[in-house]
Amino acid sequence: MRKLLSGRTLTVPDAFDTQALAAATALAEGGERLLSAALTRARTDGRVTQDLAGAPELLNRYQHASPAATAVLEAPLDARRLGVRLHLPQAFLTDAATDCLSQMDYDQLTDDWAEQAYAELAKPVHGKQAPCVAPPTPTTAAGIVAPPSAGPRSGSPTTSNNTTAPPAATCAHHAPSGTPPTPTSPASTT
């Protein structure tokens, strides 16, 4: 398919019409998981194509984000692996993000690092999705038990509000003994 489209420009409607949404729904019900997820997010506005096209750019943005922005994205990933539900409060993400930084990156944080990271992650791709959306208020984060936060840069990466480190097999940035986090890549963890 890629070779067929190489060097060509295709005009795509801004939104799926009723007939296209019905056809996409049938495919999704037949097992197309990515299309099903895109329909869930874009059903009201019909912008399914933009939703699907955003994925490669979202991945590119993650791979080239600043260390602070990457940490803000990795914090909820680690929390989900530990069983925490969706819709984490911003204070939780900000506090947890400091544990996802190497000591060198942590030492280079500025006082407004969190605001800069969230602004970087709030920029939409293809006019639709952004790596990070505005977090819900703590009152709408049902089921979340988040540790209290003293705000950005409270302590060091090893003296945050976390009382225990998650298992090394679950979280790439934390050692089981509670020792300082070390920069690792998902491929290098065991």
Score class of each variant (00 low, 15 high):
P183E: 06
H174N: 14
P131T: 09
V125D: 05
E115L: 01
A114L: 07
S154L: 01
G155N: 13
S185P: 02
T182P: 00
Y118E: 05
T184F: 12
S156F: 10
H126K: 04
T158M: 04
A134H: 14
G151F: 10
P167D: 14
P152K: 02
G143C: 04
S177L: 06
G143S: 02
P138H: 01
I144H: 01
P152W: 02
T139R: 09
P157W: 04
P167F: 06
A117K: 00
A130C: 10
W113L: 09
Y118C: 01
A150F: 03
K128D: 05
P152Y: 01
E115P: 00
D112M: 04
C132L: 14
K123W: 00
P135W: 13
L109T: 09
A130N: 04
Q116M: 00
D112W: 01
T139M: 09
A130F: 04
T158E: 13
C132F: 15
E120T: 03
G143L: 03
A150E: 06
T182K: 11
T139Y: 07
Q129C: 06
W113V: 10
A146T: 02
A142G: 12
H173Q: 15
A168V: 10
D112I: 07
T139F: 10
A114P: 10
A172C: 14
S156V: 11
P157C: 08
P148D: 12
H173F: 15
A150N: 11
T184R: 15
G143A: 00
S185K: 01
A142C: 08
V145M: 05
D111Y: 00
P176H: 06
P166K: 08
L121M: 03
I144W: 02
P166L: 08
A165F: 06
C132G: 02
T139S: 13
A119M: 01
N161S: 14
A117L: 05
C171N: 15
P124I: 06
Q116P: 05
V133A: 12
T163M: 11
T179W: 04
T140N: 13
A119C: 02
T159H: 13
A175T: 13
Q129S: 15
P166F: 08
P186Q: 08
D112Y: 05
T164A: 12
Q116S: 04
A130M: 09
S154T: 03
N161L: 05
V133K: 05
S177H: 03
S154P: 00
